[in-house]
Amino acid sequence: MSRIWVLAMFLLRDLFRSLTAAIPLGVALAFALIAFEYGMDQPQFVTVAGVAMAALCVLNCLLLAGRANRGTSYAIVGRLPRRSELLAALVVSSIVLTIGLALATMVGNLVTGRLTLGFPSALWIIPTWLDLLLLAAALALPLSPLAARGGSHLAGWVFIAAVMVAYDQQARLQTQGLDWVVRAVGVIAWPVSTLLSQASAGLHGRSYFLALGLTLAYAALLFVVAVESFDDKDLLWAE
């Protein structure tokens, strides 16, 4: 565990010593300024900022994985008992970075009065978002060229895009008789949509915890997929 933490901190330092760091900082700043322009209450914050932070976590993980996908990683991978430790470090570092940016966004908007949170109920944001960020980081791994093999990440991106479009166009799909697509997308998205809707409504009962557990299971499954792909991949880094 300590090795994964050391590696995660190394990956973060490497990111922040490059111009690439401007991307997550810029995105978080833009979100903090634009999304909170007309103020945000707690239910909105849980869902809107939750989804935005999950998307930011995907971006962070992709950026970190992109920097790890080069020759400097030979010396690192050569020291790890298992390659999966690099993937675990990427998950940890992207979550740490996203939490830092989420805290900065939250504190900045609380101080300027554009965000209202009620305590202690706002503390439920912690397990809700942590679960989402775990899923986001684990999702980014198989979508990154680092862990992907033979263009599998492109297939992953197409699948994600299809699910998102179908989720957005549910009404149209139903009118076209594609109920089964709507139902399938509903089943796939149930854990995340339930987690956010329950947390947003301040409900923390059986459905909330089931959604929390299933989201975690999704994250674990995606991490295993990434590990399986990365473990016996030829590491051909040229620079």
Binding site: R13, D14, R17, S18, R70, G71, T72, Y74, A75, W237, E239
Partner: peptide
């Protein structure tokens, strides 16, 4: 090759 992170 010289695979070292230049800013470290």
């Amino acid at each position: 090759d010289t695979f070292y992170p230049p800013r470290f």
